[in-house]
Simulated scan of single mutants.
Amino acid sequence: MEYIILAIIGLLSGVVGALVGLGGGVILVPATLFFGGSLGLIPGITPQNVVGLSVIMMIFTGLASTLSYMKSKTVDYRSGLIFFIGSVPGTILGAIVNKGLDLPSFNLYFGILLILLATLLLVRKYLKPIHIFVDNSKKKTFIDPQGNTFVYGYPIWFALLLTFGVGFASGLFGIGGGSILVPAMILLFLFPPHVAVGTSMFMVFLSAIVNSVSHISLGNVPWLYTIPVIPAAYIGAKIGAYLNQKIKSETLVFALRIILLLLGIRSIVAGLLG
């Protein structure tokens, strides 16, 4: 039974993760903790196991998504590599800190993080674009399928600082970093949503490799549970990347906001009741 549940969770994680650039961990982590920790349907699940499972899955969802986004030319490779370099030290530190978290604390902190991200996107339209980062950087231009022109950019020093924090959250919560990076790219660097998602998945793939090494060395990976999750998540990521190209930019941001808000509320409630 647990393998069927994990396969379904993996499929949904792949679809949603690739669709909005989250990497899938933001779905897999709370869902697996709910079915495994709260309902007891997945034996032996701990926050550390779930994070280990999530980072292994994200190698494959990141790869599948990146290959799809490469075809649609919505991956900014240079930005992805810069963000990856900044995230590596934070990822390793986050994986180490993860060892000290119990389930209620994990759920509570994870939920607060998601609510903050959802709130940022909720007020996005009411915030003035932060042009200071774009104005003081080398600008890039992108025209989306609807004919909208985007001018975006960022100072490298700030991108490295930001992605250190993204990497820390990724290593700590197993969420791939995309749930933080995508909103930041859209709000601070004025990335077009489709390019933000494609570039995020490229970085998720690279950082998941480093993240997995950390968690494997710490003994956090439940290898038997990767058997149903990996193929299901890979297929889901292909589906999500395909759907991404059929959805308007604003619809994409709306979907991301709702997903983060609902998961954040559920996680906080679980943390407080735990």
Rank of each mutant, 00 (worst) to 15 (best):
E2R: 02
I4T: 09
A7R: 05
L11N: 07
L19Y: 03
L22R: 04
L22Q: 08
G25N: 10
V26Q: 04
V26G: 03
V29W: 02
L33H: 01
F34E: 10
G37Y: 15
S38G: 00
I45Y: 08
P47C: 06
Q48N: 14
V51P: 10
V51M: 09
G52W: 02
L53Y: 06
L53V: 04
S54R: 01
V55R: 07
I56Q: 06
F60H: 14
G62A: 13
L63T: 11
S65Q: 06
L67P: 09
L67Q: 09
Y69P: 01
Y77K: 11
S79L: 08
S79T: 12
L81P: 09
F83Y: 13
F84N: 02
V88T: 05
L93G: 00
K99L: 11
D102M: 05
P104C: 10
S105H: 07
L113G: 05
L113D: 00
A118K: 13
T119S: 15
L122K: 12
V123H: 01
Y126I: 08
H131N: 14
I132P: 13
I132E: 14
S137C: 13
K139V: 13
K139T: 13
K139D: 13
F142H: 12
D144Q: 08
Q146C: 01
T149W: 00
F150G: 07
P155S: 10
L160T: 04
L161K: 08
L162S: 03
L162M: 08
V166I: 13
G167W: 02
F168E: 00
A169I: 06
G171F: 06
I175W: 08
G177D: 01
I180E: 10
M185C: 09
M185Y: 03
I186Y: 11
L188N: 09
L190T: 12
F191A: 08
P192Q: 10
P193L: 05
H194F: 01
V195Y: 07
G198E: 11
S207K: 05
V210F: 03
S212A: 12
G219D: 05
V221D: 08
L224D: 06
L224I: 12
Y225K: 12
I227W: 05
I227E: 09
I227Y: 05
P231F: 07
A232E: 00
A241I: 01
A241P: 03
A241T: 04
K246F: 01
I247S: 03
S249Q: 13
T251H: 10
V253I: 15
V253Q: 12
F254L: 12
F254S: 14
A255L: 15
A255F: 15
I258N: 06
L260V: 01
L260W: 03
L263N: 11
R266H: 07
A270Q: 15
L272M: 13
